[in-house]
Amino acid sequence: MVNAGKQLITGLGVLLLSLVLSVSCYAMDFPDEVEIDSLANLYEGVVFDHAMHVDATENCADCHHHTTGTGVSDEYCAKCHEGDVEMDTVSCQDCHSADPLSPENLHNPAPGYIYHDDKPNLKAAYHLKCLGCHNEVDGPTGCEDCHAKTEAGDKFYHSGEFAPAEDASHGEHE
């Protein structure tokens, strides 16, 4: 299994939720730093410099869609969510499920939805948002620019101390 510890996800999810819940963009308080580590396994969690990203972006909606009540940046979403007020939940994992085997991630398109039926899972939501923007603004895009690889990661990728020997023979398998 690539994703580890559902307990870890739940425990740290609650922690992260409480951090993010207590705040909102601009008008309200927001955390200067968010530790995104609910999925940490092959890589360490990310210590996310929220304050810097608040300064760097024009609108909370660039990352938080319509949930912060600051207007939406996507025209498609605006058809329904224009003028939305701040929601109770603004954390990514409130809407994007971390468990790859959860019904909403296993059944595509998500049953019972007309919209929001093609929602990325939590891991993808993070990476698509972060990397998508970083690619556009020339931010860091290497895996380890954001999170260091763990020992489990080195083992998984056959890197670091688990790297194959230089002159690994092609033909010999055990």
Binding site: Y157, H158, S159, G160, P164, A168
Partner: peptide, 24 residues
Amino acid sequence: VGCRTCEAACNKEQGLPAPDLPFD
């Protein structure tokens, strides 16, 4: 984005021999 994580996952799941070069 070409991270090759899928290659590593396949290698592990299918119990394939170690690669010549690391997956990263």
